[in-house]
């Protein structure tokens, strides 16, 4: 993994220009924090980095074989499926078959007790529990690029500690982008990009 390169990226929503001729580089083995006021384009920057959105002009490049995973409030999981079904489904989309042990391990790492909640439909989950499950999916998929949009919002203190530890542990072989305005989240970042309004 080398990095994600933004080359002269321009993007506007309607008449509002969010990015004008932006050139950036995100290297491997670092956590990049993206901060800025509401509406400054934090989430949009993450979407551009993951090629979920395409720029009006300019290019975004990363190695062809790099896989992307993301954690964002917009991206929901299936309410009518159980936690384990959700986990297995998304992992299988990336060609990964999860064993029971692996599922328990992921539950342990994200602080979601799979013995108790594994076979419960996620419609009965609290926001924090859903966030933990989404993080478990992220870990299960084990992609090269992580796009984290306010990953620890709605989490209790132990949950946050868990997440921070996992993100720190993963950074040695990944490119991690973290959009946040939270001080604690910003503290784990190695570099901060502040978006102008």
């Amino acid at each position: 993994m080398t990095g994600i390169f933004f080359d002269a990226v321009t993007l506007s929503f309607g008449k509002r220009k969010i990015f004008d001729n932006v050139t950036l580089k995100f290297d491997c083995r670092k956590i990049f924090g993206v901060t800025g006021a509401n509406g400054s384009g934090k989430s949009t920057l993450l979407k551009l980095a993951g090629k979920i959105l395409h720029p009006d002009s300019g290019t975004v490049n990363f190695p062809d074989n790099a896989q992307i995973a993301a954690l964002s409030p917009e991206m929901k999981i299936y309410d009518a499926l159980t936690a384990v079904e959700n986990l297995k489904f998304f992992a299988r989309l990336r060609g990964k078959i999860l064993s029971d042990e692996k599922i328990f391990e992921l539950g342990r790492r994200t602080g979601l007790d799979m013995k108790t909640f594994g076979n419960e439909r996620t419609e009965n989950f609290s926001t924090g529990m859903r966030q933990r499950l989404k993080f478990a999916i992220l870990l299960a998929v084990d992609a090269d690029i992580w796009l984290l949009d306010e990953p620890t919002a709605n989490l209790d203190d132990t949950g946050r500690e868990n997440f921070f530890a996992e993100i720190q542990a993963a950074k040695s072989e990944k490119i991690i982008l973290l959009a946040t305005n939270d001080v604690a989240e910003a503290q784990i970042c190695d570099e901060i990009i502040r978006l102008p309004m």
């Binding site: 917009e74 929901k76 299936y78």
Partner: peptide, 16 residues
């Protein structure tokens, strides 16, 4: 509407 389409599109291959 349920918000799952973006997750599905991110993790799943488009043709699949």
């Amino acid at each position: 509407q349920a918000g799952t389409l973006s997750t599905l599109k991110l993790y799943g291959d488009a043709q699949a």
